[in-house]
C-alpha cells in the first residue's frame, strides 16, 4: 500500500464518517425541531458521500498489487529478471556445474 493510496483512503473514510454524522444530525433536527418531516437530505451531504465513495474506490484500486502477466512466457521472463526463476533448478544440474571454478574457490577458502 503506497503512501498516496493510504492518504486517499484516510481522507475518504473521514469524509464518509462526517457525512454519516451530518445525516444523523439532519434526521435528528427533522424529528425534534421542525414540523416538516419529509424533507430530503441536503445536497452537500449527498455530494460528500458520493465524493467519499469515489475516493475510496480510487484509493483501493491504487493500493492493489501490480498485476502479473497471464502469458507464461511474459511472466517467466519477468520473474527471471527478478532473480527467482521457476527453472533455476535446471541450471544447477550436474552437467552445468563448473567444477574448476568450485575447486579454485575451495582452494582460496583454505588459504584464507
Amino acid at each position: 500500500m503506497t503512501a498516496l493510496s493510504k492518504f486517499v483512503t484516510t481522507i475518504s473514510l473521514l469524509l464518509l464518517a462526517h457525512a454519516g454524522f451530518s445525516a444523523y444530525e439532519f434526521s435528528h433536527y427533522l424529528k425534534h425541531l421542525t414540523i416538516k418531516s419529509n424533507a430530503s437530505l441536503p445536497a452537500d451531504i449527498i455530494v460528500e458521500t458520493v465524493v467519499a465513495i469515489a475516493l475510496f474506490g480510487l484509493g483501493q484500486v491504487i493500493a492493489a498489487p501490480t498485476l502479473q502477466p497471464v502469458s507464461f512466457a511474459k511472466w517467466a521472463k519477468q520473474v527471471e529478471k527478478e532473480g527467482n526463476s521457476p527453472f533455476a533448478y535446471l541450471e544447477r544440474r550436474a552437467g552445468f556445474v563448473n567444477i574448476q571454478q568450485i575447486r579454485s574457490d575451495y582452494k582460496d577458502s583454505i588459504k584464507a
Binding site: 464518509l16 475510496f56 483501493q60 492493489a64
Partner: peptide
C-alpha cells in the same frame, strides 16, 4: 501462468469486497 492468474483474480476479488462494503455505507447514509 496459473500463479499470476490466481494473484490477479485475488486482487480483483479483494477490491470488489472492500469497495462494496463501503458502497453499502454510502447507500445507508443517503
Amino acid at each position: 501462468s496459473s500463479e499470476s492468474l490466481a494473484q490477479n483474480t485475488k486482487a480483483v476479488y479483494y477490491i470488489r469486497s472492500v469497495t462494496s462494503t463501503i458502497f453499502g455505507v454510502g447507500a445507508g447514509i443517503l
